[in-house]
Design a protein around this nucleic acid. Sequence first.
RNA 1: UGCCCGAUAGUAUAAUGGUAGUACGACAGAUUUUGGUUCUGUUUGUCUUGGUUCGAAUCCAGGUCGGGCAACCA
Length: 558
Amino acid sequence: MNEIKKEEEKSLNFLEEIVEEDLSAGRYKSILTRFPPEPNGYLHIGHSKSIILNFGLAQKYGGKTNLRFDDTNPVTEDTEYVDSIKADIRWLGFEWANELYASDYFEQLYLYAEELIRKGLAYVDDSTSEQIAQLKGTPTTPGLDSPYRSRSVEESLQLFRDMRAGKYKDGEKVLRAKIDMTSPNMLLRDPIMYRIKHAHHHRTGDSWCIYPMYDFAHGQSDSIENITHSVCTLEFVPHRPLYEWFIDKLEIFPSHQYEFARLNMTYTVMSKRKLLQLVNDGHVTGWDDPRMPTISGLRRRGYTPESIRLFAEKIGVQKRDNLIDVSLLEFCVRDHLNKIANRRMVVFDPLKVVITNFEQEEEWLSSEDNPEDPETTHRKMPFSRELYIEQEDFMENPPKKFFRLSPGQKVRLKSAYIIQCDEVVKDETGKITELRCSYIPETKSGEAQSNMKVQATIHWVSIPHAITTEVRLYDRLFRVEDPANEEGDFKEYINPDSLQVLPAAYAEPSLKEAKFADHYQFLRKGYFYLDKDSSEEKLIFNRTTTLRDNWAKEQKKS
RNA sequence: UGCCCGAUAGUAUAAUGGUAGUACGACAGAUUUUGGUUCUGUUUGUCUUGGUUCGAAUCCAGGUCGGGCAACCA
């Protein structure tokens, strides 16, 4: 019994192991994590990995998570981003214990800086940034001490106060930590703690003209909040000694930093800088363009929080660089949408079918909303003498494995009747203009001959009842798997066919009632979601993703 | 030619000194009023060379390969 249970247990990722070890060793009574975005862009699917990790870790072990905006660089940050970040986190299904800002700690951070100066561990440097870079050395050659390094504590203290008081222009002076100019870790070669920026801050306004650098703000912010596990991405590994150095010298609560590999995904880019370029250069319509890997883009496209959380669970957490196949994300969203999406029929590329022996004006047929749901509801669909089916569902000279309609052959119309193609009508150019078919009355769904064997079932709409809708079909944004690592500019690899707009597809009338709360499966076409550009007069649907398509695969082979 | 991190099927991820497993993908089949879903099966892997050990993906040493580090960005 015990063994069976053990087998079913999911193995822990390395961070969960660390937390369990810390908890069982009694190092903490409970854990506190944080999610620390800089409000300088929109969140993307990579951030969702971090969000789910930080909030999930706390949830799993009965702890809490703070949301802390890392707003130490006023020139790139904005409240627009603060709002979008909060909305995205909530949409993913998480609520933070406290909403905090690194800028809340500017006064405390300033006092910490004075303390380090008094301890002889920091000094004001008058060098230009070029001089500082010059003396910094390179990864293979040690740096040299700045001439200002030996300045007295009193002088540095006075100068630092003057910096705060606004006596200097941007770039004239910086405050640096006095560590080791010969350290093999470049970040320990007297890193800059404060720089002068006469800039308006989105929260503190004009009350400061000096701003702390990331390294002097992040660890202390964690410490002030008593964060137990500060989880960040791999590029911060070399920062960890510095993170610990400041905490150690300041003798404050020892938060600990742990690093995991950021998410990379095929056929897209995952850096805020690159995404911003796509927006600014007009390659996409905005941060929430459905082709973007942003959370807002995925939401608009019709992804669900559940599907993204499932994705995060499946990709796991590790320290090795990775490039996740986007087909895994697609699997996750199909998995969820298959369970919740209502089925509807929409014809994208119409071919007229006349049912020659159908004498009534119309007949309303019942069709299930979701066959995956044992308690599915049903809707009524109008059937009439004139219908549209998909062009691709008819072939005059079909190959052997083509199961759909062709001259003399039968197909089932989903939730309606089996029809047979009697005649192909063409115009003078030889183009097929309509199909004349007959229906077999007793084959209506649920009736006597409804289990008659046919090779395929296709979707359809009644022409007189159909409504039109715009449909936007999306494909991958880039033509290559890893555009960021190709030669030259990543933008050269943009897929020119990432968006295909169908101005008028023909939909069954029930779609008039489509809501943003609902996701739809257009039968045999894919999953679709109402776009925010829709209006009373005009419906617009985004294709979230296609269905798996074995027929398409079969065709590709030949 | 410095320091740091890493290396398990195509892509991810498990095995924590004791039978290399899982998911996605691919392929084949069954079921199906969606060429969807579901189900079954097949395929492919421990970077390398030594060492420790009864036994190594796991521990040790050398090598190889990949990534990061020289913003007053985070």
